[in-house]
Design a binder for these strands. Structure first.
Lengths: 136, 136
DNA sequence: CTGTGTGCAAACACTTTGCAGGTGT
DNA sequence: ACACCTGCAAAGTGTTTGCACACAG
């Protein structure tokens, strides 16, 4: 059980709901919304429990939030983060054909010069277009 | 009445609610959420009417959506758009101290190279940090 | 055994829709 | 006069909270 080990690592108790949600996020290359997750896991898990599961994953840094262009909150694994250090300076991409959102972990956000007086602490980039599956 | 002229230009009937919302957006340099707007205009206007007003402004290209880091939808005037042509390739900035979100119209989004097969059509950048008012 | 996670019910926030009546041009 | 805008009521969706019970370590 890979998920059990991960949960232990992050000091979260291993429970069926957490394992299932985590497994889903691990095996899925796209960011998933709460409702995506709800429909893909076992019905027996309550909607509220899934919310709380995601919240606990977020607070431990196992996953991060991805906002798409319509403000829909999605979640994806933190591939580049260790427990101690977090990097989210990668680009998110939403395909307008298939609707899927993904992290382009290898595409870093360039520096952007701001006007006098502004101080940048965090950057978030969402690109929309056609993904490599839909662009033919 | 500047607002009346603008509404006419965009082929929208001039009504009290539209004028008031438009005036508010014109005189405000920050992006405003629906609830910001609701509290700042005359109580007599129904919440629903404000939603519809914003939707009509959006569809005519008078304003554009700005999403902040928490997925809150805000609205700001299109300074750079004409009726025919729309540019939104500027950076949005949210100050983590005062909470205000604004368009940095002069800060263009740099080109970002995507992996093989991806095609970019629209880019959206949100930077968080301290604005020129709060950074001292 | 103890603290944490879960399920259920309910509340809350945000946004949309249908309809009847009112208003701008 | 007519099309369009508005207000009200209601419903849909997404998310949070309180509480009693269940379960993992």
């Amino acid at each position: 059980m890979e998920t059990k080990k991960i949960l232990n690592d992050y000091k979260l108790k291993s429970t069926p709901c957490r394992s299932e949600v985590l497994q889903l996020l691990i095996s899925n290359e796209h960011a998933l919304s709460h409702s995506d997750i709800e429909t893909k896991i076992d019905d027996s898990h309550d909607r509220v429990t899934v919310y709380r599961t995601l919240k606990s994953f977020l607070s431990k840094g196992i996953i991060h939030k991805v906002l798409d262009d319509e403000g829909i909150t999605k979640y994806a694994l933190c591939h580049e983060c260790s427990k101690e250090e977090h990097h989210h300076e990668h680009v998110h991409f939403k395909c307008e054909h298939c609707g899927q959102t993904q992290c382009l972990d290898n595409v870093k956000i360039p520096d952007i010069a701001l006007p006098q007086g502004f101080k940048s602490k965090e950057k978030n980039v969402l690109i929309q277009g056609l993904c490599n599956q839909c662009n033919n």
